[in-house]
Design a binder for these strands. Structure first.
Lengths: 213, 213
DNA sequence: GGCAGCGCTAAGCGCTCGCTCACCGTCGGC
DNA sequence: GCCGACGGTGAGCGAGCGCTTAGCGCTGCC
């Protein structure tokens, strides 16, 4: 009960790849501030204050405020893509893999809501070249989900008239969890993940076929 | 072909209820600026510039920059609620009414994307009392959709284990259209509306039952 | 045709922003 | 035991912010 970090169920503490300890504290503070107020409404003084440092300390570890956002967005997208890839490349039917992908993707968006919020909604605050890098990652995310749906259509498990549109809708549904989910709400990330996995299976015409866990 | 205003298919020009002409021009300029850059990243000088006026002119018609956002948000939510109410209270089966609600709600979010973006994503920039007013409107939006789904469950048309969760997901799906939709994309608002209406019917267990227009 | 009222502008106030710079304490290497 | 390197601070720079104010020109009324 130190900082309530076990909501994802998976790893205990992310951002471990951010190596100087002070840099990590600043980055975690920035994630919280950006998620609460948005990038533009967050001041560098606020970030430094949350990390227990002076405003100038920020510029020892990061060149600009935007670099902080870029690092957060990059690491977050890598994590999101990793989650989807793991689900997409496991063994099992297309329905099982799609349910797994949606379930774990949604659990991440709900459990790591502050991170997901920054990652999904502050893209426009990045400069052109940083945004281009992130957009490329998003295309890989899209391709991963589309691949599962195409597999299900090919095997006859799914009935999907518009694969691209349905892929878009599935991802849209998952991403928007970061907007509305709150820890004070009636649902746990696990419950939302299970509900959404079921809804998505229905969307691809494989509904109610959720046999087993 | 003056400003491309016929994308919604419905009325020709919104914001007609904003009465002094200069006030309406400022408000339309603010909608565009807020949608492009976000509320906090938009300056009053930018808004006034887009409306072809000096920065001081803004304060003749609006007390603060936040009042502009409040007015936009209020009018937009009223419109969104009106769209859903019209669909919910027409005659027809629950499936027809749900498809109509989702279709028209999505068409609005896609066709009036700039407005919808501000309305749906800049809520946190409002002060406490203004936000409370808007949150109350959102609850009515939620109740309208939930009502249709409950009707369908009661009549046996729908098979929905979690009515509240499914309502949330349906609205979430529609709202997120404002985030990803772009006029340069491959789909028209009408096409997205039709696709989403079909997907939502599948989500409630009334899929492929789209007989007739 | 003078004038009150109003919509609007030019200029600028006070403030806070992102970011910089001169300086300082601590700590490992010799 | 001194010393360079490095992580950190206090103070503050220039710029741009939201918003105000003094005044100007147009327009309608008598």
């Amino acid at each position: 009960m130190s900082t309530a970090e076990e909501t994802t169920g998976g790893e205990v503490e992310p951002w471990e790849e951010v190596t100087p300890d002070a840099a990590r504290r600043l980055l975690v503070a920035a994630v919280e501030a950006f998620a609460e107020r948005g990038y533009h409404a967050t001041t560098t003084r606020d970030i430094a204050g949350r990390a227990g440092m002076s405003p100038a300390a920020l510029y020892i570890h990061y060149k600009t405020k935007e670099e902080l956002l870029h690092r957060i967005s990059r690491i977050g997208h890598d994590k999101a893509l990793d989650i989807l890839r793991t689900a997409a490349r496991r063994e099992g039917s297309a329905a099982e893999r799609l349910a797994d992908a949606v379930g774990s993707f949604v659990r991440w968006h709900a459990g790591r809501r502050t991170t997901a919020r920054v990652v999904q909604y502050e893209l426009d605050a990045l400069g052109p070249e940083a945004r281009a890098e992130i957009v490329a990652l998003r295309r890989q995310v899209d391709a991963e989900v589309r691949g599962i749906i195409e597999d299900g259509v090919a095997s006859g498990e799914f009935d999907v008239p518009d694969v691209h549109g349905t892929t878009l809708a599935v991802l849209s549904l998952c991403i928007d969890v970061a907007r509305w989910f709150t820890v004070n709400g009636p649902r746990t990330p696990e419950e939302v993940g299970a509900l959404y996995a079921d809804l998505v299976l229905r969307m691809v015409g494989a509904g109610q076929a959720s046999h087993g866990s």
